[in-house]
């Protein structure tokens, strides 16, 4: 079977890309292989681990459970798009660094995107809410204590940002 190739436009972190992919190309693979955006990680490839989570029109979704062809027309944000305009770390990234929220870093991109969207919806989470925010993401080495602390710290940094703006 010769596979049909679809020419699609993907808008990632504000930049429009044209890619040619077979329909079965997972969005996670299109980001990593076709666009070279290897910040999005792939763990389980069936929706369980959360490493591949990106933002689709601002809402966190599993890029391993979406086909690239279905994502054309949406505004995609990957971990590469979370830094501040001047290139310094965004609030969630900064908080992970301060709170020691990562060790090997494999799971981190999925946590960062999930928490970025979570804080947009709930800017002032309690510790329980912070824990619930990351309940769909697995981390094999850091443990969740520091990640939960980082969620609360990120909320604080974002608040400081808003107050000084």
């Amino acid at each position: 079977m010769t596979e049909e190739i679809h020419r699609i436009r993907l808008r990632v972190n504000g930049v429009e890309h044209e890619v040619a992919v077979p329909a079965r190309r997972l969005l996670s693979d299109a980001l990593r292989h076709d666009l070279g955006l290897t910040g999005t990680h792939v763990g389980c490839e069936h929706g369980v681990c959360g490493a591949c989570t990106i933002l689709v029109d601002g809402a966190p979704m599993r890029s391993c459970l979406t086909f690239a062809v279905s994502a054309a027309g949406s505004e995609l944000t990957t971990v590469e798009g979370l830094a501040r305009p001047d290139g310094s770390l965004g609030p969630v990234q900064q908080a992970f660094r301060e709170c020691h929220g990562l060790q090997c870093g494999f799971c981190t991109p999925g946590f960062l995107t999930t928490i970025t969207a979570g804080l947009a919806e709930n800017p002032d989470p309690t510790e329980d809410e912070a824990r619930d925010m990351v309940a769909g993401n697995l981390c094999r080495c850091t443990g969740y204590q520091n990640i939960v602390k980082a969620v609360c710290r990120a909320a604080e940094i974002a608040r400081e940002d808003r107050d000084s703006a």
Partner: peptide, 9 residues
């Protein structure tokens, strides 16, 4: 039903 991220899609 699943996690919030799954429920978004």
């Amino acid at each position: 039903v699943a996690h919030a991220t799954i429920r978004n899609r």
